[in-house]
Design a protein around this nucleic acid. Sequence first.
DNA 1: TAATTAATTTAGATTAGTCTAAAAATATTT
DNA 2: AAATATTTTTAGACTAATCTAAATTAATTA
Lengths: 219, 219
Amino acid sequence: MNSFTSENYLKAIYKLVEHGNDAVSTNAIAQKMSTKAASVTDMLKKLADKKLINYQKYQGVSLTPKGEKAALTVIRKHRLWEMFLMEKLDFKWDEVHDVAEQLEHIDSEKLISQIDKFLNYPKFDPHGDPIPDMNGKIQQQKSKAISKYKKNDIVKITGVVDHSASFLQYLDKSGLALGNEIKIKDVVEFDRSLHIVINKRSTLFISNDVAKNILAITK
Amino acid sequence: MNSFTSENYLKAIYKLVEHGNDAVSTNAIAQKMSTKAASVTDMLKKLADKKLINYQKYQGVSLTPKGEKAALTVIRKHRLWEMFLMEKLDFKWDEVHDVAEQLEHIDSEKLISQIDKFLNYPKFDPHGDPIPDMNGKIQQQKSKAISKYKKNDIVKITGVVDHSASFLQYLDKSGLALGNEIKIKDVVEFDRSLHIVINKRSTLFISNDVAKNILAITK
DNA sequence: TAATTAATTTAGATTAGTCTAAAAATATTT
DNA sequence: AAATATTTTTAGACTAATCTAAATTAATTA
Ligand SMILES: [Mn+2]
Ligand SMILES: [Mn+2]
Ligand SMILES: [Mn+2]
Ligand SMILES: [Mn+2]
């Protein structure tokens, strides 16, 4: 089995590849893992030895099919655990991530398949991120940030980009949650800030910075 | 926080102290942990530095109050997770231990208090072992091995001594489970083997070796 | 009590993961 | 195309946990 640490590296590389980058740099990984470039280079050699990544000195890395499968398994476990914590144990969406970071490394196929069943096979986690199935298949939502919609568009919130506790707590306090209907009432030209109406009831003013971090689809 | 490994040492020492031994020997720990005496000595020094155990060269060890609290917390988590796996995820009682060995090290107070609540504050785990409460308090059962009962005694199964999967599977196959009523129909003088009646229905013959590993109280 | 045996500790290595500082390679400017 | 800046890798060291082999202490036996 892959170590706790290896799993975290694979997950980090997966997410960097996912967000555009074709070959991921040593520095990018170091930043994402809050570690130093020298440590990353050491680990990359080990992961390459195990055929989990494609790596040639100075050329950046990508996941092999084997490495991608491993990464997707960790992500599947993380997101299922987040869902479990929220649905069954009354955690709030800003509390689940840190615990899931630990639980995602528990090694038991039966455990995770039973959790999946217990939750009735959810397709998305509490932040709107897709949960890979047993085979690593992902069901993508074609949503975009609400900052990209126009005046009078009516959309449904499907996810968040920023996953930090402070951002999620701000959304809670503002009455924003997954599934909410949002109408773009007005767009301020100067700074792209938005006036929105939530569920046809309350109105709210949000900055462009916030708007860029809320994902939605047209209703 | 204590490392994964430290927690396992503390748990091992706790269980050795629990089963009679006053000061636990290096060799006993090595055997229980499936490691070597030299490794144990190294670890004992570290645990002593952290004031988790009382240790003087060649004199054996015991837990300090701080060490005992830590051990009981791990045991509480282990047994709650076993209960969760069995009650909520349809694991069998011979399948829960290995996964609980991993889950017991997850560090989150909220997680464990919510699991406890979710299970409705169970007092005993799937093997009949007591689950320490938040403060480390244990509710002991005054049960003894059915090998110690006499002919015509009627008792209720409350736990097992041996926790191995093979023993538990043997009990399953024989129709023996926690809560069952057992009548000692006959005791064979020669080898102390027993004829028993389960729930007033089926009769079964068990060896003294088996009888010593089944705990029960008089009905 | 002395000799022998058993238990425990120390010494010295090893492995995984990390770090800092220095060297080497690549990318960017001039 | 050189010079400079940036990125990446290497070298060497550190910690936690482990091991084998040797030394030391304690326990048992004669
Ligand atoms: Mn998360
Ligand atoms: Mn999530
Ligand atoms: Mn167990
Ligand atoms: Mn148990």
